[in-house]
Design a protein around this nucleic acid. Structure first.
Lengths: 142, 142
DNA sequence: CCACTCTTTTGGAATGAATCAAGTTTTACT
DNA sequence: AGTAAAACTTGATTCATTCCAAAAGAGTGG
């Protein structure tokens, strides 16, 4: 388990540190956690880790492709460890809840822009905006 | 010109104010402007408009659907007046430049999620991440 | 196993976009 | 014109994120 993370880090030629292992562990089974939550989870096991370390680690892991950063408009940054499978997200406009969605149209649906203006595109990110079941019933029942 | 904006505002049952007309004018021919730029543009004509007013106006116009807010991860909010035609954006990872892209796969390609988790989806936002021509040549020439 | 170098982390302060709050002005309708 | 509601002004505040310099830790070669 821990050695898994260690292997991941080494594969990405990142040094293996307590902070990094703790962040990976915190993200393991939790989708879409925001930075504050990561800090709290990390400190549950390692109370001395600074918030700055968590920010640095999240950036390093994001750059290395081990975690993915998602930041819907108007919300704080969230991170997830599910990477490399081209999945997307539904975001609730009223409560900010996020859920995973697999790609509707094949494997890389929107990866081809009609006119890319000369940009070299390497990723297509899709955010579905709507209302989650909870907020929907709340609103209709009023 | 101004009366156009006035009509737009009235159609959305929003009051017609100097600040709102100025913001609409500022967004007219400028795609993807950030809030600071909007403030500067508005003040060019109306020096007394407060930044708070601009924030309020942008939110009101966004809620009314007259402008669209876009906020790629890690950048400040930007606004555009091109609405209602389901177009998307390419964003440069290194300089943050944004360009419009029309929808590749038909009219509303990704609007149907494979499994929407009970969410009522009303919009699909697509962000293409990549490198703009300028940054690409810069990098290869080094 | 030890020393050396480079990277990472600590702890605290700073930045900056965005929001909140109270009081004043303006708009739209009668 | 007169009035109520909405919008705006001013100024302060919040809060996520970043910057900084010093201390600690990781990995490499001896």
């Amino acid at each position: 388990m821990t050695s898994d993370f260690e292997a991941q880090l080494r594969a990405a030629s990142l040094r293996v540190t307590r902070a990094r292992l703790a962040v990976l562990a915190a993200l393991r089974d939790r989708p879409h956690v925001d930075t504050d939550t990561v800090i709290a989870l990390v400190r549950a096991d390692h109370p001395t880790v600074s918030h700055q370390a968590v920010y640095d680690v999240l950036r390093a892991l994001t750059n290395a492709g081990l975690v993915r950063r998602i930041q819907p408009a108007g919300a704080t940054a969230r991170y997830e460890s599910r990477v490399g499978d081209n999945h997307h997200h539904v975001v609730c406009r009223s409560c900010g809840a996020i859920a995973d969605v697999d790609c509707a149209v094949g494997q890389a649906p929107c990866l081809t822009a009609s006119d890319d203006h000369g940009f070299v595109v390497d990723e297509a990110e899709v955010v579905y905006w709507g209302t989650c079941p909870g907020c929907a019933t709340e609103r209709t029942s009023q």
